[in-house]
């Protein structure tokens, strides 16, 4: 499978949103690129091949194992923050001391579009503050669309 496909599969497992939901943000490529901008060397490919291998071997234990892993856990949690909040959270010094970084490892919102596309607003049954307005008076009605 391509990195792109593996990245999507991993993202689906991490976020609880479907491939269609994730592709609908229009940010898949951008977030994969974000990983490349922060993780050094071949780490992105290593992460995705680790995911592919674990998935074949461990089934439903794949994500818990990944999240417990010293190296991949912080990265996987950051991927959740990317999809839900459109933001990168700086990996801790202890992590970068061990693994290095390709740079750009600071707290930042990926882009204006990434902020607007955050899945947290969908999970809240709401809309991003300042965008995707719901229409006059929508706030007076009971919230809908919660799972």
């Amino acid at each position: 499978m391509s990195d792109h496909e593996l990245f999507l599969d991993l993202s689906v497992d991490l976020t609880g949103f479907s491939r269609i939901d994730l592709l609908g943000t229009g940010l898949t490529e951008r977030y994969l690129e974000e990983l490349h901008e922060v993780l050094p060397g071949t780490m992105v490919s290593d992460l995705l091949s680790t995911f592919e291998r674990e998935r074949a071997n461990s089934g439903s234990e794949t994500i818990p194992r990944l999240l417990e892993d010293e190296v991949w856990g912080p990265v996987a949690r950051n991927m959740i923050m990317l999809w839900y909040c459109g933001r990168w959270t700086a990996l801790p010094h202890s992590w970068t001391a061990q693994n290095g970084t390709a740079g750009k490892n600071t707290d930042h919102v990926v882009s204006p579009a990434a902020y607007v596309a955050g899945l947290q607003w969908v999970a809240a049954g709401a809309h991003p503050a300042g965008a995707r307005q719901q229409g006059f008076g929508a706030w007076a009605t009971a919230p809908e669309g919660l799972i």
Binding site: D13, T15, G16, I63
Partner: peptide
């Protein structure tokens, strides 16, 4: 939810849909 409670996937989404509103 992600860091302190270790939530991910559908359980994370369900938790946020319960708490945020």
């Amino acid at each position: 939810a992600v860091s302190a409670h270790g939530l991910y996937g559908p359980e994370l989404r369900r938790h946020l849909s319960t708490v945020l509103p």
